[in-house]
Design a protein around this nucleic acid. Sequence first.
DNA 1: CGTCTATTTGAATGTACTCAAAAGCGGTGG
DNA 2: CCACCGCTTTTGAGTACATTCAAATAGACG
Lengths: 191, 191
Amino acid sequence: MKNDLILANVAKHITLDQDEVHYFTSLLKYREVEKGASLLKEEDVCTTLSYVHSGALRAYYLGKYGKESTIMFAIADWWVTDMYCFLNCLPAMTYIEAIEESYICQLSKEHFDQLLAEVPKFERFFRILMQNAYTREQLRIIQNLSQSAEERYRNFLQKYPLIAQQVTQKQIASYLGITPEFLSSIRKNLN
Amino acid sequence: MKNDLILANVAKHITLDQDEVHYFTSLLKYREVEKGASLLKEEDVCTTLSYVHSGALRAYYLGKYGKESTIMFAIADWWVTDMYCFLNCLPAMTYIEAIEESYICQLSKEHFDQLLAEVPKFERFFRILMQNAYTREQLRIIQNLSQSAEERYRNFLQKYPLIAQQVTQKQIASYLGITPEFLSSIRKNLN
DNA sequence: CGTCTATTTGAATGTACTCAAAAGCGGTGG
DNA sequence: CCACCGCTTTTGAGTACATTCAAATAGACG
């Protein structure tokens, strides 16, 4: 059944009884996003948290002169949103688009708050989710500060081999903070 | 009383009754760290989470050829640890040292786990703490990817005016990911 | 097949680094 | 209280890493 994936994801950290499963799943809304479509545009108020059931999404920031900076990729079994804006009910700073046809499962901010109030176990679940996100971002910062572009690229390939297959080099370059041209030259000199 | 500060910090997000206050404070250990002393060295297993009562600390990564990368500064009312290693009971990847004489309050991993088990409200507290840490790091990544060194420096001054007064330029440079020499030249050209 | 975008290549440029030396500053001991 | 020491900050010259721009090639998709 379609909820199996997300329930397995939740079960990694907390154990729900039948009622809680029903309540939780009743709050979810499934949605298909076709390749290239936007889930979130800058200045839309970001009202949903999404779990990726299948497909691949990319969150990016659009800077001056149209320069894109990829914040994260989200493939199957990842959660994605503009977290800051979601939590604070603010207009988004980022864009989220489908890299390929995706099937996602959304929780609105309203339902998110209700869920935490009704089933406090989810405080634990989201604590762990946030924890993992925090430590992941911190590691990324350390690497951005301490490693060369080539090392960062090697690292990316090693850490996210699945993602590396699903996205373009241009997108990887914007995740690493370099130009596609430079990534191309790094690849040429790799071996 | 010395627990007032940390209790006020906790009270920002959750409300404790008398018993919970007593239980929580019974788990804390206060400690003085003199200027220049290390709280955590690379490869020590990171077993404590610290709340800064007064003073200033710095967490940094030591890369190849001795290059330091500052991960975060922690002044009064901040929490600090090597979060990844703390949560997973691993040897630290980072160093934490006192920039000035500091008075901190520590929670061991064991007590941290007990606290979450005994007083589930703290799941909420730490969820919000992790959330804030995550969104802060994410914003830092966006800025690192999209802004010039000068913009990042201006931003730092604006966002952390107190910290900027307590730390050296060399330390700020290592937080921004540039050399002290280059920061110096940025400052010369500021106005 | 034609169009659009991604990738590669190379030359010129700019941003940030390295190295070295001088100047400034804070703390310590005589 | 001053002189000295160690560390930070500044300055400048030379260099390396990464970008921009332009053009050619390759791939993806209708």
